[in-house]
Computed example of a mutant assay.
Amino acid sequence: MPTDESKTDTGYETALNEHYGVSGLGNELLDALEAAGKDVDALTRDDIASVDEFHIRGLEATREVADLAEVEDHSRVLDVGCGIGGPARTLASEFGCDVVGLDIVEEYCRAATLFTDRVGLTEKVRFQHGNALDLPFEDEEFDVVWFEHALPNIEATEVAIEEAGRVLRPGGTLALYEICAGPGGEPVFPVPWASDASLSHLDPPDRLREIVLDCGCDETVWKDVTGPSLEWFENVVESMQSRAADAPPPLGLNLLMGAETPNKAANVVQNLKEERIAVVQGVYERGSYPL
């Protein structure tokens, strides 16, 4: 288990927690769910679906990547950058996996644990605070390592992928659903993953593929899904703009993104349209040779 402190930056970790870590997030979400008429003492995954998956195209994309990766029943999965746990709960409940979710944001880990308990999945899913650059797990511990929109906040992509390969068994699967740098120039900020460039670290698609291949993985799937991502976010922005001014706050990802949600969503649309960012899915198999 690695202990190299040079891999991690506590100042950067603090900045990420300040960007994402709304104090008391779990209780805030419970209050919003209750205000929307949900029975918070008997929640289902459907009840929390609108806030559960903090990435482009939500639950649809998680299912899509799991199908592409051919995730099998009883697979042991590590979800790196798990957020409040939506994809981990999906993999457990719909694909029969045993999942460990890891996130650098402590408040996300607390909220993820709370909601996993509320929907009755604690025997299949657990969450742990930790850093993708220094994974607190033994070598070859997982069948699948899963990244969904985690890499934009990771400056040292090579280290994160090396760590993923280390904890992945030979023949295991690395699944990626990530935002990459596009050819159209630097992104317009703020965006959901960063208020400014200091927290945003996007690799071009070809560079990301090169990093994974150099770590001893073989590519089985690579898809550019920028088109459907743009369509989805355009619908999000249209829905926001069509809401009456006196309407109550929606029960959605605005609860995670805060007051800047409309601006962040509009900027994502602009970035996608102007090819400042791209969205990709990739599936890789870890080779049996040493990393």
Rank of each mutant, 00 (worst) to 15 (best):
Arg169Leu: 07
Glu231Ala: 12
Glu34Gly: 15
Gly86Glu: 09
Tyr108Asn: 15
Ile48Leu: 12
Asp224Tyr: 06
Leu230Arg: 13
Pro249Gly: 14
Val188Thr: 08
Ile154Thr: 02
Pro2Arg: 07
Lys7Met: 06
Trp193Gly: 03
Gly182Ile: 04
Phe127Cys: 01
Gly21Val: 00
Ala244Glu: 13
Asn17Arg: 13
Ser198Tyr: 01
Phe54Trp: 11
Leu114Met: 15
Cys180Glu: 06
Pro204Arg: 15
Gly216Trp: 00
Ala66Phe: 10
Ser288Thr: 10
Ala92Lys: 04
Ala69His: 05
Glu231Ser: 07
Asp47Trp: 12
Asp139Asn: 08
Arg63Asp: 11
Glu148Ser: 15
Ser242Asp: 14
Gly83Glu: 01
Ala88Ile: 08
Cys97Ala: 15
His74Leu: 08
Val236Asn: 14
Ser198Pro: 01
Glu138Arg: 11
Leu29Thr: 01
Glu94Lys: 14
Glu274Met: 10
Arg166His: 03
Arg207Gln: 13
Asp196Cys: 02
Asp134Pro: 06
Val268Gln: 02
Ile48Ala: 15
Trp232Pro: 01
Leu213Arg: 13
Asn27Ala: 15
Phe54Leu: 10
Val167Arg: 03
Val40Leu: 07
Thr90Tyr: 11
Thr14Phe: 11
Asp203Met: 14
Phe115Ser: 04
Val65Asp: 08
Leu272Asp: 01
Glu5Pro: 08
Glu107Arg: 00
Glu18Ile: 11
Asp203Asn: 14
Ala35Asn: 15
Ala92Asn: 00
Glu155Pro: 04
Glu140Val: 00
Gly185Met: 09
Thr173Ile: 07
Thr173Gly: 04
Ala278Phe: 06
Glu210Cys: 09
Cys109Asn: 01
Arg63Gly: 15
Leu68Cys: 10
Leu213Met: 08
Gln270Phe: 12
Phe54Arg: 06
Pro250Ala: 14
Leu272Met: 02
Asp98Thr: 11
Pro228Ile: 03
Asp224Arg: 02
Arg110Pro: 03
Ala197Leu: 05
Asn17Ser: 12
Ala245Ser: 14
Pro183Thr: 12
Arg207Leu: 13
Arg243Glu: 12
Leu29Gly: 03
Asn17Val: 08
Thr14Tyr: 11
Leu291Asn: 09
Pro2Lys: 11
Lys264Cys: 09
Leu91Phe: 05
Leu25Asp: 03
Glu219Asp: 10
Arg57Thr: 13
Met240Trp: 11
Gly258Thr: 04
Pro248Gln: 10
Glu141Phe: 05
Glu107Ser: 07
Ser242Met: 08
Asp73Arg: 14
Asp9Leu: 04
Cys109Ile: 00
Pro262Phe: 12
Ser50Asn: 15
Thr90Asn: 13
Val159Trp: 00
Val159Leu: 05
Asn254Pro: 02
Met1Cys: 05
Arg207Cys: 03
Gly83Trp: 00
Ala150Asn: 07
Leu151His: 07
Phe233Ile: 11
Thr10Met: 13
Asp39Thr: 06
Phe127Thr: 03
Leu176Tyr: 11
Tyr289Gly: 09
Pro204Ser: 15
Val283His: 06
Gly120Ala: 00
Glu60Gln: 15
Pro262Asn: 12
Asp134His: 10
Asp9Lys: 04
Glu210Asp: 14
Glu106Met: 00
Cys215Trp: 02
Glu260Asn: 08
Arg76Thr: 09
Cys217Gln: 11
Thr14Asn: 10
